[in-house]
Design a protein around this nucleic acid. Sequence first.
DNA 1: GTTGTGACATCGC
DNA 2: CGCGATGCCACAA
Length: 116
Amino acid sequence: MKFRSPKNLRGYYELVWKLARLIPRGRVASYGQLALMLPAPQGVNDDAYRAFGPRWVGGAMAHCPDNVPWHRVLNSQGKISSRPGAEKQRKLLEAEGIVFVKDRIDLKKYGWAGPK
DNA sequence: GTTGTGACATCGC
DNA sequence: CGCGATGCCACAA
């Protein structure tokens, strides 16, 4: 059963979830990173996507299926985004071996390069 | 059809 | 380093 949505945009969300699931344990990715990594939906200008990509990724995460490690997705600042349960997310990340430095994560160390 | 909002990013001060 | 303001798309009411 599919999500009611004849449009590809909703399918794009699923794509985001799929990519999020590919994030290995102990590693994190940023919304902008995922946005740049994923292709822009048909009918969307590349420029516009670049500007609003991260927000769409966030929108996809907003639906947050249970099978998606949403806690491994952070913002470009390497911090947890505003969202209920942010503290819980930090706990989950620490449980995976990720070290927080002043509420921040070293993306150079834990930054996910992609499925490659 | 219009208005408001969104789990962001980037630039400026 | 921190805060404020701006930009863009689609969806929901």
